[in-house]
């Protein structure tokens, strides 16, 4: 199962080897030319001699994770996040550490031992550590060295009504959409890019855009969703189950108006539910792509993801299916000359 395979693979920003190999196995029979660039992004070129605008489809394959920076005398591991993680969500979470993926837990003082004042304060990164069950530095060093990585240990599961939870829907869900799209045939030159280091500052996408020089770029993302109790409409950003969300403005991009409106029109015409992303917070690879060279017409299509950048992220499988449908419909419309760069 594609979403399980992709979300359970290991790949914190800058260390995407495992997830890249997993994706490579999925895509190797579809591309005319498949390669990895200097930063580590996986690039799959298809149908490059076809007429029509050259299209870049991008999804980042890295995930938020942790780097081990020190081992304490008693064998506990100090760590720092790679990417934006709220330290308040870390306590007691299971993680997988190092190249052997050994089990660890992010520990802290039990509630019984905390002073009343301590209980009122969220724990800071400095107070947290990863416990891999080692009783001394020497024992821990047999398994782990500073510079090793860790990710949340969450397994993919389908729950409730057409929902799924996993550790890294941001943005393995986008990678899955790209892989499914690649299996369809388009009479367009399309380059699929699985980018690196998005979570540490959109670093992988710019060099990809510079190399490919596309006429149009589309990024598929997992984006914020907070449609939960007592959140007013203007605080939700997106609604789970209401279809793919089209970006209007975020921290790094003001979307290209004609292109984003075209995407919404295609969705409406094909009977695919779409929504607009209702926040200016957050950013994605479009931020780097659209400013490349002389500027590139770009848009972002996102799957609403509750509890993003946390161990158990949640998506609607209907939103996923509708994103796959929408992306195909948009590409068909471009194929038929419905939107030109």
């Amino acid at each position: 199962m594609l979403l399980r395979k992709l979300t359970e693979a290991f790949g914190p920003s800058g260390f995407e080897d495992e997830i890249r190999q997993v994706i490579y196995e999925e895509v190797k029979s579809y591309g005319d030319k498949i390669y990895t660039d200097a930063l580590g992004s996986l690039i799959v070129e298809t149908n490059m001699t076809a007429r029509g605008p050259k299209i870049l489809l991008a999804a980042h394959m890295d995930e938020v994770g942790f780097m081990i920076v020190d081992i304490e005398d008693h064998g506990l591991l100090r760590f720092r996040p790679l990417g934006g993680v709220d330290p308040r969500i870390l306590v007691s979470k299971p993680v997988l550490v190092g190249k052997d993926r050994i089990f660890g837990v992010i520990g802290s003082k039990a509630v019984h031992l905390q002073e009343p004042k301590e209980r009122e304060q969220p724990l800071e990164l400095q107070q947290l550590y990863i416990d891999i069950g080692a009783h001394s530095r020497e024992e821990a060093e047999k398994y782990i060295a500073p510079g090793d990585l860790a990710v949340f240990a969450t397994k993919y599961e389908e729950i409730g009504e057409r929902r799924a939870k996993a550790k890294s829907f941001d943005d393995r869900v986008g990678c899955a959409v790209l892989i499914e799209t690649m299996r369809k045939k388009f009479d367009l030159p399309i380059v699929y890019a699985f980018t690196v280091q998005e979570e540490t500052g959109l670093r992988g996408a710019g060099p990809v855009a510079y190399r490919i020089k596309p006429n149009l770029a589309l990024v598929v993302e997992g984006t914020v969703c907070f449609d939960v109790v007592e959140t007013p409409s203007h605080g939700q950003s997106t609604l789970q189950g209401a279809g793919p969300a089209i970006s209007v403005v975020d921290a790094k991009t003001i979307a290209h108006r004609a292109f984003r409106e075209h995407i919404v029109q295609v969705g409406t015409k094909e009977g695919i539910p779409v929504q607009l992303r209702r926040t200016i917070g957050g950013a994605n690879d479009v931020g780097a792509i659209h400013l490349t060279e002389m500027g590139i017409i770009s848009a972002a299509i996102s799957i609403p993801t509750r509890y993003i950048h946390a161990p158990s992220q949640m998506i609607s499988l209907d939103d996923y299916d509708n994103t796959v449908r929408l992306l195909e419909a948009v590409l068909r419309s471009i194929e038929q000359g419905g939107f030109s760069a």
Binding site: V249, R278, T279
Partner: peptide, 9 residues
């Protein structure tokens, strides 16, 4: 500088 509409109640 401008004000971008993110929601309409």
């Amino acid at each position: 500088p401008a004000l971008s509409v993110i929601d309409i109640d």
